[in-house]
Design a protein around this nucleic acid. Sequence first.
DNA 1: CGTTCTTATGACAGCGCTAACATAAACCCA
DNA 2: TGGGTTTATGTTAGCGCTGTCATAAGAACG
Lengths: 333, 333
Amino acid sequence: MPPIKPTLTDVARLAGVSEITVSRVVRGKGPIAEETRLRVRGAIEALGYVPNRAAGTLASSASLFIGVILPSMHNIVFPEVLRGIYEGLAGSPYQPLLGVSEYDRDKEQEILASLLAWQPMAIITAGSDHTDVTRRLLSESGVRVVELMDTEGDPVDLVVGFSHRQAGYDSGRHLIARGYRRIGYVGHDWAADRRARLRYEGLVAALADTGLSLAAEVHADGPSSVTGGTEMLPRLLAAAPDIDAAVFVNDDMAVGGYFHCLAAGIAVKKDLALFGFNGLDIGQAIPMPLSTVRSNRFEIGRIAAERIIAEPKRPAVTEVVNTGYEIIEGATA
Amino acid sequence: MPPIKPTLTDVARLAGVSEITVSRVVRGKGPIAEETRLRVRGAIEALGYVPNRAAGTLASSASLFIGVILPSMHNIVFPEVLRGIYEGLAGSPYQPLLGVSEYDRDKEQEILASLLAWQPMAIITAGSDHTDVTRRLLSESGVRVVELMDTEGDPVDLVVGFSHRQAGYDSGRHLIARGYRRIGYVGHDWAADRRARLRYEGLVAALADTGLSLAAEVHADGPSSVTGGTEMLPRLLAAAPDIDAAVFVNDDMAVGGYFHCLAAGIAVKKDLALFGFNGLDIGQAIPMPLSTVRSNRFEIGRIAAERIIAEPKRPAVTEVVNTGYEIIEGATA
DNA sequence: CGTTCTTATGACAGCGCTAACATAAACCCA
DNA sequence: TGGGTTTATGTTAGCGCTGTCATAAGAACG
């Protein structure tokens, strides 16, 4: 029942040409007479030929894979980066090969090793916080390496992102400029999420520059979530009832905080300002649009992909593409 | 600078064994003396050997890929399915190879063709609404085919999901049982999303069984989103001001509707009941947890992956695994 | 009309690995 | 002690494709 898969040879025989000619037609490479092309196409159709990329990869020692390592699929942030990557790759023959590290450096290393076994022509990884082995593998692979999201740290090849520390700093400046002085922080378990920590440090630095410090901070155990914000904001308020603003590690948590305010009858902005991070759809959809930072995630993915296509060989010098960010004024701070 | 990649032969030479022995050590297959294994492992370490899976795939004509085709990455629904797939595959040597069809049947077909070129050992696709060519390719591929989400339609091999029509029907029964009679519907552009349409049909059928019909319906243009719900609910109310319940195509839209009620001072449930679909985190995090249907998306992905591992060869008979669903009572209906 | 260039095609080797079959040594039990 | 079994390793022959170089037939040119 499973029909024996036709190979190039079968197509070539049927079309009355050599294998290499069929190969050229399939890949659209090299000069082919129109008449020959049609004959070959006909044979391909007739046999239902599907090329074997494993053989192609082996023969040319160049796969069409781009290895992608993302830290999480628990919220929409990295799926958006991935969409950007697919968008940037659209129309090209390249195919992403995805691994999810769950914010675990060792797992990232494992995934990288298994991705490299497919001879990818590039590796995209979200983050710059790698194990030594990971860095070595990336560096020695010789293929293009794009590190996404954060511009701090020492690039292997190309970096696409922005400074999370600076974004945190600017968030603090924004609040200070609007008169908030007693600022609390709601975070999550950031042992893994280095970028969250960088934003936090930026925020603290902004406060320090004005002679302030965080009034209080609380940290959820698990990954960030809306319910996490709903749970943690009351704890923050218990620790420091007189704060006038709460900064959240991201929009998920901030929206949860907003819901707590709704339920507890706290007047948002007037009694308590809320500030998030990421610029998620949900944050802008709540009745009072969230004050937050737009992080251009889709763009980051798209640019990474486009850069790889534009320059498939690793250049001699490293480069940093700053995609910037933008404070969204919102209505909550 | 890019060091020549060591091959099996290099490892074999250094370890003083034959290539096949190294291959066996790498794959953990066949009997290997502990001493030999250590020697080979040492050589692998020393050379930084990374196996070439393209060669392995070609030689064994069995890749470790599982082709996955999902319709969208625009909301968290399919990333959750994907997480389930990764979870189910954890610890196995299999690697998902993802394509995103954007709810486009022709694109699904293209993606399938390109995935098949990698000789996947299975294909997971979300949905049963394929082009004829897609169905033929799936069927003739000879590998395991899992169609996710919906149990209606004619399976190629394995189906994992539940009946969306029935879920829509039960949503209608739920509302009717609670005394709602003037029911409106907020949908989106479902030309592509067949499952949304099935739920709608189930809902209409439930109403018809009680001698009722939809009081009004509106459809957003684009894909579903929170802001879409915020925009469309007022239109529904304009079309039928006296409705006592609104059913939304999914939770994103329903949450948007909830926000509209907040902003417009509509007492949710008392003046207007809201009902969603999917059981997203955000729906349960709003101050009044959304009445909706839990669709077990993570489980669907996980079960699909586990089934493939448990039975990697396509069996003679088709099978349907019903993952069920669950009405979440919530506070909005 | 020979020379050079361009276009179209083919022959052949080999990419790096593994299936299948051999071989050899060690072990087992009556 | 000798056949049978198990364990450990090797030999050989490709898997299906593409890079490289070769070839042939026109076209272009002075």
